[in-house]
């Protein structure tokens, strides 16, 4: 397994990110959301951990060491979309833009509450998986936290 994985794993992250972005964007017209996008990226990252070992994987991609903070930030973003309403006097979990208002587009991406929520969820799911993989790998291979 190692020779194939060794070649594929480092090259898989880019395509996985693009696939995840596509899944988030199309999620509002078709199947897909932040959770599945997060799982896809996390799988690509898991493969890096498997092929490189946790130390090398994290040295080559230092942002992985910040996974707990990324997970927290993601959760807070997701939570903020729910409770932005009460800050401006609307009920909690209000959808912005409100019905009838025009939507800001970035290409085909519509900037709406649900997209922001899914981005937060994506960050959380990806980072939470990385934290799990980190701890499992450390248990299996030994070494400091």
């Amino acid at each position: 397994m190692s020779s194939i994985i060794g070649v594929v794993a480092p090259r898989l992250l880019g395509p996985a990110l693009i696939l995840a972005a596509a899944i988030i964007v199309k999620g509002y017209a078709d199947v897909g959301d932040g959770f599945s996008a997060g799982v896809i990226v996390a799988t690509a990252l898991a493969l890096r951990y498997v092929s490189l070992g946790w130390e090398l994987a994290e040295r080559s991609l230092p942002v992985l060491r910040r996974a707990p903070q990324v997970a927290t930030a993601g959760l807070l973003i997701a939570l903020a979309t729910g409770f932005a309403g009460p800050l401006v006097g609307d009920p909690p979990f209000t959808h912005y833009p409100r019905a009838g208002e025009s939507v800001i587009h970035i290409g085909t991406l519509e900037l709406i509450t649900a997209v922001v929520f899914d981005l937060g969820l994506f960050l959380f799911v990806t980072a939470a998986f990385v934290v799990l993989i980190h701890h499992l790998a450390r248990l299996a291979q030994g070494g400091p936290r």
């Binding site: 927290t72 959760l75 807070l76 939570l79 409770f83 309403g85 009460p86 909690p92």
Partner: peptide, 15 residues
């Protein structure tokens, strides 16, 4: 909203 938001947001940050 506050009663639910305060512990939720702070809990996530504190973890």
């Amino acid at each position: 909203s506050l009663a639910i938001l305060i512990p939720w947001a702070a809990g996530i940050a504190l973890v």
